[in-house]
């Protein structure tokens, strides 16, 4: 609990980046954010922890203009802490907006998709390009949301892991961008 008080005092030190993560300097990170190993945060990606900490797991890709926002619900007490947890192997594509508090593993948020605060995403889900989920629900595993009317189906398999892409980005992004230094939670 002592760490909580230090958060409040020095919010700049809340960013925790694991050793093998690649977080570009041009990304916009605000608040208490933990980024796991091998996770790639592209330049111009936005992660805002407003209502509480955001904990991002390993092997995620967060692309340009992706927004991950832990927003305070309107009218809520500003002192309430809401923790947003994002699992491993997720892909946030260009210009998607993620506001929910929970995401499992191996999900894909496609281009310009939007997941509202009430939607809990389990594992293996794909939110198709341009799809908006704003209701209140728990998306079952392997759900695919697609098309203009957000039609749904349950896929057989989870979307494949993006290990090759992560490996490639790990090598190339370093050549063109300054990175935010890894900093463990303890240091």
């Amino acid at each position: 609990m002592s760490s909580l008080s230090t958060h409040d005092a020095k919010p700049k030190h809340d960013l925790k980046i694991a050793t093998h993560a690649i977080v570009c300097h041009e990304s916009k990170l605000k608040g208490d954010i933990t980024i796991g190993a091998h996770t790639i945060v592209h330049p111009r990606a936005t992660i805002i922890a407003e209502a509480g900490p955001i904990i991002i797991g390993e092997f995620n890709i967060i692309e340009e203009q992706a927004h991950i926002i832990n927003r305070l619900p309107p009218g809520a007490d500003p002192s309430t802490q809401i923790v947003m947890e994002i699992g491993n192997g997720n892909v946030f594509e260009v210009d998607c907006l993620f506001e929910s508090t929970k995401m499992g593993d191996q999900n894909v948020m496609e281009v310009k998709s939007h997941v509202g605060p009430g939607v809990e995403i389990t594992s293996g889900c794909i939110i198709g390009a341009g799809c908006k989920l704003t209701g209140k629900e728990i998306l079952p595993e392997n759900t695919v949301v697609y098309g203009r009317n957000c039609a749904r189906r349950i896929a057989m398999d989870k979307p494949p892991m993006q290990n090759l892409q992560i490996e490639f980005l790990t090598k190339t992004l370093v050549n063109y961008h300054h990175l935010k230094k890894p900093r463990s939670a303890n240091s």
Partner: peptide, 9 residues
């Protein structure tokens, strides 16, 4: 590639 349906389904 749109709705991820496959012939395996």
């Amino acid at each position: 590639f749109f709705c991820r349906w496959t012939t395996r389904d």
